[in-house]
Amino acid sequence: MGKAIRKGWGPLLLLCAGLLILTLFFAWGALAWPCSPTQPSGDSLEAPGPAHWLGTDDLGIDIYAQLSRGFFSSMGLGLACGALTALIGGGLGMLAGYKGGGVQAAVDLAVQVFLAVPQLPVLIVLGAFWGQDRRLVIGLIAAFSWAPVAKQTAAKTRSAAHRTYVQAARSWGANSWYILKNHLAADVLPVVLVGALAVVGKAILQESALAYLGLSDPTAKSWGLMINRASRFAGIYFTDYWKWWLAAPVAALMLTILFTRLLARWLEQRLLEGSV
């Protein structure tokens, strides 16, 4: 067992190191890099060079600086969505699983509705109306992410609540909060955590997809927006511009997603399934 754990930590270290390097790379770009992410600092569409590591876009704005700003905005959005999902999904799930009856039926219906709604079309519609407000985008994405978490949490809570020691605690007159805190939390929290972590990556993607369709805050320098603008630049197939203007945000997005995804996966295996 001990060996297995030690062996299992390897990927985690690797992933964390990867994320850390990404974060540092972009932190440098956001804090120490001389170019502005909003103001032109060179000629338009300069190829990567010493002055602009990743070149410039059509307005002459440094791409590395934009990417860096985008990283923190994307990460912030992802984490906020994750936290919100954990709060709503975890809370409602525990409530439903523990209380049962009418509460459970109501939560079931809500879960069912949100699972059945075709997500992307709804996001497209609502994104057009509310997309420019970042807080609303976070709310929207969270609204479409909490249902699976709530479903799993409810199931876990229900099974945990039926254990003898919980039943015993209840028969001794322990109040709900006490039982939730002391007996159920340990079983349920990992489910919520893993669910929320998976949402982080997904949220970043969904926001980028909305931005790609032009439905997100256009003043925020998000990666999806950069991809959108680059891929719509007329005649980009004929030029080399895509090599830095388009490839850079795509690579950044894919790397970030990859790391968060693998991290979530690792945690899922470790916390929920015991071992690989």
Partner: peptide
Amino acid sequence: SAICQLPPYLVGLALLFLVAA
């Protein structure tokens, strides 16, 4: 598990630029 969350539009764009063009 690594690729299962890749957004289809990114894959599409990548294919567009790397293959179709």
